[in-house]
């Protein structure tokens, strides 16, 4: 464990708790892409299948359990409890256009052709594009609530910090995982446009609105 990965994990935890809190407090999931949340749920479930079989540390097990629980709770709030506030007209990104290619790629490019490894690879590839429906929804509505933009900033920062963690681990531990690194770079690059808007607008107290 290194500081970059720890701060990255905490940023990730902050992001998903922020979103859950926003939906619960405002009793509305307006502006939130349910499709992205479903894909994040899939990411955690396929990645943390070894939750009960492969004990790494208390921290590792606890965080995995929290991520899965919060993801399921968020999906529940969006599609059940506050279903009336779900903006399905703007959440129209076709998930199958992401899940099918990612599933195929996981079969073709992986470290080990075993079920667990292919599911882990699928999870890594899916996570890199899971935010697309959310970014697409914001581009369609032309704006995002400030709390939603904080959620996105924390979520994007987590994987950016993981990239720094991978550089650190390469130089100090000689460890690297090309699949995670390439997918992590793609994932972070997808946030660049948002990061620019966040820094130039939200940090100056303005609302995040995309140029019409």
């Amino acid at each position: 464990m290194n500081i970059f990965r720890l701060v990255g994990d905490l940023s990730h935890l902050l992001a998903i708790l922020l979103l859950l809190w926003k939906i619960w407090k405002t009793r509305s999931c307006a502006g939130v892409s349910g499709k992205s949340q479903i894909m994040f749920g899939l990411v955690y479930i396929t990645r943390y299948l070894d939750l009960f079989t492969n004990f790494i540390s208390i921290y590792n097990t606890t965080m995995k359990a929290i991520f899965i629980a919060v993801a399921i709770a968020t999906i529940y709030l969006i599609y059940f409890k506050f279903k009336a506030t779900y903006d399905s007209n703007h959440d129209t990104f076709r998930m199958e256009f992401l899940i099918v290619p990612v599933g195929g790629l996981a079969f073709l490019v992986n470290h080990d052709f075993t079920a667990l490894e292919i599911l882990w690879t699928f999870s890594i590839y899916l996570e890199s594009v899971a935010i697309l429906p959310q970014l697409f929804m914001i581009s369609k509505t032309g704006e995002a609530e400030t709390i939603t933009s904080h959620y996105l900033f924390a979520l994007g920062s987590y994987r950016a910090l993981y990239i720094v963690n991978w550089v650190y681990r390469y130089y100090f531990e000689g460890f690297f995982d090309l699949i995670a690194i390439v997918a992590g770079c793609v994932q972070t690059i997808l946030y660049c446009d948002f990061f620019y808007l966040y820094v130039t607008k939200v940090m100056h107290g303005k609302k995040l609105s995309l140029p019409a």
């Binding site: 990965r5 994990d9 990730h12 070894d50 492969n54 790494i56 540390s57 590792n60 965080m63 995995k64 991520f67 470290h111 080990d112 882990w120 993981y162 963690n165 460890f175 995982d177 995670a180």
Partner: peptide, 10 residues
């Protein structure tokens, strides 16, 4: 290929 402990990241 990476050994098993490599999957220590979230």
């Amino acid at each position: 290929p990476l050994d098993e402990e490599a999957k220590d990241e979230l």
